[in-house]
Design a protein around this nucleic acid. Structure first.
Length: 481
DNA sequence: TTTTGAGTTGTTCGA
DNA sequence: GTCGAACAACTCAAA
């Protein structure tokens, strides 16, 4: 292999979680300064800890889609596996590229990688340029009046709404010129990101289409339909009234800035406002991870390190497998396993159940979500688990314990959601569907679910679990004070 | 500096 | 069935 000589400037576009061509600031900046572009995706080996099995499944589809759309622009995506700090300087030397452009990632592992890559490139007289594109707002630009970091959502949201200076989306290029001779790369298939033995991804294939084109299509459908009733619709897990854009946003197949702009072109009805708030929550999560790099591993309030979590492997396994005996919890966990996704309302219910009723460390739940969700995002996942656990995000009162029975009755009134994912309860009457253990003696055998046989009895008494959680949180706070 | 108002998503109890 | 109050006290952020 000998270094190529080119007469014009070349730039590497390092794709990470901006797997799109529309409104891609790194690509745009590279095209402005260079005559030819080398698109690269580097998979760290081993993959970073936040790349779970479901994420790798999605990544395969998303990279395949990106290869196709780049090819349509005359470019080819170079896939490499290993240490970016070694591979990128090599590729830059090989292609005589003087710069590398990438989107900023808030995860600590990527920030460490960026530092090594920047140093290695700079030793060879080359530059790493990082661009904001994952979030609406630059996390360093949002400060409290006294220059501090926001710790509560509402003041943060007020601050960003007052600024509302998101950069305008940049256009999709018509053509992406590549060097005559491109460096070699791996084949996507050789990475073996898809499961084979066993192939657990059938439900994922049925539910999702990764890639920029599918992301844009879904966004269009959502913005014209469910977004208008999002305020109330988003709470009903039995209906398809959420955006389902989370995995597309996680991989940057969809530009959040373009989505934001599309949303604000419309008159602000309550549904659209609520959805805009969700996008600000997403930004807030990245902001928190940026300023608290140990968000995923340490409670924001240190006193909660002392919370006496139970080491309950059987309970954790029952929760993971959707066999807790609490219908809406099991429905949620099975939806997650089958489709790689769970409705947001139910995520709160299952998380609260694990952390409060079972008194199992939120980090165990967060790890399971990271492995099984197609939208697994370290920032959002860590923030939301800490919110449910009451360990630092905002001021969740410790007495707020979700009751899975009332949540089910309130938001899955007709039981459509539970029946879809816990089919063995199909024949139970609505009245006791969310709490089968309260059914009159004859009902369960008649409905084909004799107690504790096809469907388990509850692994914890809900009232007792709630009391135990209240007492535990109360004493943890009191000891700290 | 001190003060003040407020904090995504809940539950239970009693009138 | 519906409604308001209590749950307890702290931290945040702005004035």
């Amino acid at each position: 292999m000998c270094p190529m000589s080119t007469s014009s400037r070349t730039a590497i576009v390092w794709f990470r979680r901006d797997l799109r061509l529309l409104d891609n600031p790194a690509l745009h900046a590279a095209l402005k300064t260079a005559a030819s572009i080398v698109p690269v995706f580097v998979l760290p080996n081993p993959p970073h800890g936040d790349l779970g099995s479901a994420s790798l499944w999605w990544l395969h589809g998303s990279l395949a889609a990106l290869q196709t759309s780049l090819a349509a622009k005359g470019a080819r995506l170079i896939l490499r596996r290993g240490d970016p700090a070694q591979l990128l300087p090599e590729l830059a030397a090989h292609t005589n590229a003087d710069s590398v452009h990438a989107g900023i990632c808030p995860e600590p592992a990527w920030r460490a990688a960026d530092a090594s890559v920047a140093a290695a490139l700079s030793n060879a007289g080359r530059t790493l340029h990082l661009h904001h594109s994952l979030t609406l707002f630059d996390p360093d630009a949002i400060k409290t009046r006294s220059g501090g970091v926001y710790g509560m959502y509402t003041p943060y949201a007020n601050a960003v709404r007052a600024i509302d200076a998101t950069a305008p989306p940049v256009p999709e290029p018509d053509h992406i010129p590549c060097p005559q001779r491109m460096p070699a790369g791996d084949s996507l298939a050789a990475w073996k990101l898809l499961p084979t033995h066993p192939d657990w991804a059938a439900g994922l294939r049925q539910t999702w289409t990764p890639g920029e084109a599918a992301a844009r299509a879904r966004a269009r459908i959502f913005l014209r339909g469910a977004a208008l009733h999002y305020e109330s619709g988003r709470n009903l897990p039995g209906h398809d009234l959420t955006s389902r854009l989370s995995p597309h946003l996680r991989w940057g197949e969809l530009s959040v800035r373009a989505l934001w702009k599309a949303l604000h072109r419309h008159a602000q009805n309550p549904g659209e406002k609520t959805f805009a708030n969700e996008l600000i929550w997403r930004d807030f999560a990245a902001y928190l991870l940026w300023h608290h790099p140990d968000l995923a591993t340490r409670p924001l309030r240190p006193e909660f390190e002392n919370l006496p979590w139970r080491n309950d492997q059987a309970g954790l396994r029952a929760w993971q497998q959707g066999r807790t005996g609490i219908p809406i919890v099991d429905a949620g966990m099975r939806q997650l396993w089958q489709t790689g996704w769970m409705h947001n309302r139910v995520r709160m219910v299952v998380a609260s159940f694990l952390v409060k009723h079972l008194l199992i460390d939120w980090r165990a739940g967060a790890a399971w979500f990271m492995d099984t969700l197609v939208d697994a995002d370290l920032a959002a996942n860590s923030m939301n688990w800490q919110w449910v656990a009451g360990t630092g995000i905002d001021s969740q009162p410790f007495f707020r314990v979700f009751n899975p029975v009332s949540q089910g009755e309130k938001f899955d009134t007709d039981g459509a959601y539970v029946r879809r994912f816990v089919p063995e309860l199909d024949h139970l009457p609505d009245k006791c569907l969310h709490a089968p253990w309260t059914a009159p003696a004859q009902i369960l055998p008649q409905a084909g679910v004799p107690p504790g046989q096809t469907y388990p009895a509850p692994i914890v008494d809900l009232a007792a679990g709630r009391e135990r959680a209240l007492a535990t949180w109360k004493s943890t706070v009191r000891v700290a004070a």
